[in-house]
Simulated assay, not measured.
Amino acid sequence: MRLFVGNIGNAVKYALSDRKGIIIISALMAITSIATANQHLNAFWRMLAVTLLIVMGYGSYVSWYTLNGSDEHPKINNLKKLIWEGFKKSAITFIYSIPLTFFVHMAKVNMNSNIILSLIGIILFVLTYLCFIIGLLNRYLHKGKFIEAFSLPEIINLARLFDIKSFIRVISAVIISQVFAITVVVGFSNGFDLIELVKSISTFFLAPFFYIAAKRFVGLNVRELFNNTPI
Rank of each mutant, 00 (worst) to 15 (best):
M1E: 14
R2V: 13
L3W: 03
F4P: 02
V5I: 13
G6M: 05
N7L: 05
G9M: 10
A11F: 02
A11L: 08
V12G: 03
Y14W: 13
Y14M: 09
Y14K: 08
A15E: 10
R19S: 13
I22Q: 11
A27P: 07
L28T: 14
M29C: 13
M29Y: 10
M29K: 06
A30K: 08
A30C: 12
A30R: 11
I34Y: 12
A35W: 00
N38C: 08
N38I: 09
L41S: 04
L41M: 08
A43S: 15
L48I: 09
V55L: 02
M56Y: 09
V62I: 13
V62D: 01
G69D: 04
D71Y: 01
H73R: 11
P74N: 05
K75F: 08
N77Y: 11
L82R: 07
I83H: 12
W84K: 13
G86M: 04
G86A: 10
K88I: 03
S90L: 09
A91M: 07
I95Y: 04
Y96L: 09
F102Q: 05
I115M: 14
I116F: 12
I116K: 04
L117W: 10
L119R: 14
I120L: 15
F125I: 01
T128I: 04
Y129F: 14
L130K: 00
Y140P: 01
L141H: 03
H142S: 14
K143Q: 06
G144Q: 03
A149D: 01
I155A: 00
N157E: 15
L158A: 05
F162Y: 04
K165Q: 14
F167Q: 05
R169P: 07
V170D: 08
A173I: 00
V174F: 15
V174M: 05
Q178G: 08
A181N: 10
T183A: 09
G191N: 09
G191E: 10
L194H: 12
L197V: 15
K199V: 07
S200Q: 09
S202E: 10
T203Q: 08
F205K: 06
L206E: 00
A207F: 11
P208I: 00
F210Y: 06
F210H: 01
F210R: 00
F210T: 01
I212N: 03
A213P: 05
F217K: 02
G219C: 13
G219Y: 02
L220W: 07
L220Y: 05
V222Q: 08
E224A: 11
E224M: 15
F226Q: 07
T229M: 03
